[in-house]
């Protein structure tokens, strides 16, 4: 009987899977992804809209939802007092953060990748005739669908890191929503020259680049965008790790 990395991951998986709210939030995220994809595929069309764009049009809301899931997982340790029990069992502390991130990220990646494929299948079935259909074999389709899962998995990790960093559910969710939804809107208010330079690098814009069939004007290349987003996640994780290690629980 001793503490092992696998044991800490198993413990975090038990925490994740033993809460009803986890399953509800995960279900809602998948549902948002699929339902919005279906509705958009059936009804929307436009100059540059591909059937992938339509199928994944729920990804912004799904991102918010998996991000909230991660934030709640992280912050609830503190809001419930569970952190005391957690850290007496794992007094080195950091394995808790890594394991919680791994579990939330992997769970969101798996469910959201499945969700993306389902959204694409359903969306293709109901696609309106103004938009050309695509198959899984077409250029960039697989990358966009798996990329959606990867992006949403990383968003869940970002949520965990924010929750552990600010130790409050409301605070973590506010920062998350601000970073993903509000910051791009604010950037648009800046003078054009500045706005055009920074917009591609804003978290949700960078992360979403991986879901575009071909990069539009003023967006990053797919994998470059995902790497930039991963950078934000890593920086937030590092801050959370620092606070976890340094501050009293």
């Amino acid at each position: 009987m001793k503490i092992t990395p696998g044991g800490v991951v198993a413990a975090e998986w038990t925490k994740f899977s033993s809460l009803r709210s986890t399953w509800i939030t995960t279900g809602i995220s998948a549902l948002l992804l699929i339902a919005f994809g279906m509705i958009a595929s059936a009804s929307l069309s436009g100059d540059n809209l591909t059937s992938i764009d339509l199928a994944l049009s729920g990804s912004a809301l799904a991102a918010l939802s998996v991000g909230v899931l991660g934030a709640l997982l992280g912050a609830s340790e503190y809001t419930t007092g569970m952190i005391r029990a957690t850290l007496t069992a794992v007094p080195r502390r950091l394995p808790v953060l890594w394991s919680k991130s791994l579990v939330a990220g992997a769970a969101a990646f798996v469910t959201m990748t499945i969700g993306a494929f389902v959204a694409f299948a359903v969306g293709s079935a109901v696609l309106n005739d103004k938009v050309a259909g695509l198959g899984l074999g077409d250029d960039g389709v697989l990358r966009a669908l798996v990329g959606a899962g990867l992006y949403l998995g990383l968003v869940a990790v970002l949520g965990v890191a924010l929750g552990m960093l600010v130790r409050s559910s409301a605070g973590a969710i506010a920062i998350l929503a601000g970073a993903l939804l509000i910051v791009p809107g604010l950037a648009a208010l800046l003078p054009d020259s500045i706005s055009e330079a920074i917009t591609p690098y804003l978290p949700s814009n960078a992360g979403s680049a991986v879901m575009a069939l071909t990069p539009a004007d003023g967006t990053l290349a797919p994998w470059a965008g995902l790497v930039v987003f991963a950078g934000y996640v890593i920086v937030t994780l590092a801050a959370a790790a620092y606070r976890l290690k340094r501050n009293d629980a």
Partner: peptide
């Protein structure tokens, strides 16, 4: 009550036991 109110007694103890392979 340094525990999550949404977990059962068994799950709460399991989250601690798993870390050590208990």
């Amino acid at each position: 009550k340094a525990m999550h109110p949404g977990r059962t007694a068994v799950s709460h103890l399991l989250t601690l036991a798993r870390t050590h392979g208990i």
